[in-house]
Nucleic acid binder design. Sequence first.
DNA 1: CGGTGATTGAACTCATGAGTTCAGTATTGT
DNA 2: ACAATACTGAACTCATGAGTTCAATCACCG
Lengths: 205, 205
Amino acid sequence: MSPTSTQVARRDAILAAAVAVFGAAGFADAGVDEIARRAGVAKPTVYNHFGDKRGLLLESIRWATARAQQRVMGALSGLDPSAADLRAELERVSRALIECLLSDEGTAVMRLQVSEQHHLAELDSLRLGARQATVEALAGRLAIIAAHGRLRLPDPVLAARHLMALTSDEPLAESGFGARRLQPDEVVGPVRDGVDTFLAAFGVD
Amino acid sequence: MSPTSTQVARRDAILAAAVAVFGAAGFADAGVDEIARRAGVAKPTVYNHFGDKRGLLLESIRWATARAQQRVMGALSGLDPSAADLRAELERVSRALIECLLSDEGTAVMRLQVSEQHHLAELDSLRLGARQATVEALAGRLAIIAAHGRLRLPDPVLAARHLMALTSDEPLAESGFGARRLQPDEVVGPVRDGVDTFLAAFGVD
DNA sequence: CGGTGATTGAACTCATGAGTTCAGTATTGT
DNA sequence: ACAATACTGAACTCATGAGTTCAATCACCG
């Protein structure tokens, strides 16, 4: 019996609600009743789809991680290696990346993976895999820029990690890993500074 | 009535046990019974000292943050601005800082502050204050090195933030914010790379 | 249509753990 | 020595929320 479209829609609604509630309250304080209510679904339906609360948490994180990863890849593919103003282009893409990290879904995933690891050792590889995929995608774009002679990169993967660290560390800390919404200029400044240092280390001027 | 020394010792034992249990299990999954048992104390004694579970959490985080901060300051004061090998000295101190972050107490504080923010908005300033104090202490040491003409630092505070970001980002992510114990070489390599990039940006060679 | 399986809503069971009570026992300051 | 105060241990209350049950209803597929 292949699932009907309304079944898929219900499943997605449950997952979206679960990510929101788990992300806001944490696993233990989240109520299955509230997730069902937000999804517009009866409680037994949740148990029908996901077995139990822990199964729902696992699927929620897998689902949200995949979605976040897609958004990240979209942001990275927007990096134009031949943009006239390299500095501005790096700042733009770094801001887009941070936007993904600090979105509601992004912060929910981050916080759950940090705080609920005792529930989900099996998702460690997912977390690290997502990080590595992001780093490598960014490294690929940076390598193209380096091939154009506009960056000096002995190790593109390392440079990618360092660009992300330089630009995202401060906004992440300042926002309390997504607990507080940042003002735009709380991202713009740190990103500019981070790209400054990145170009001081890897630029060709 | 000033507290006796055994009262202080009991209080500290409770706080140490609470940090360990809260850090491992999270607020909701931590049991006051277990904290009391680990502290070698009866449950009503815990309630005598801290009122309720939330009060215990708050005091635990304040206490552990202060202790971690002291260790961090100790590590920073060990930075010798006139060390013969600047690169090695920066690596050494960065490793010591990461050691503090990834210690049992350090990771407990970090994870609680990330995951239990809905319980403790009032501790936001504590978290940011600790971070800022660390950054400024490191900035002070870096400024001395710059005054010796061994670094080119337009903004020592910014440089301090970037040094910390470059060296600690990868080990923190790799360890899942303290969930997994790192092998020594999982710290050494990333720190060397981070200091490399730092010196490429701010070195005087 | 008619039947099969999913969904609903409401009531239910049951385990867990926070917080309390209290009578008895250590500790401490005077 | 003697209050006064803190601590113990064990039993207790009580709120909460996971997971279940079931009869009634709905959605889809032949």
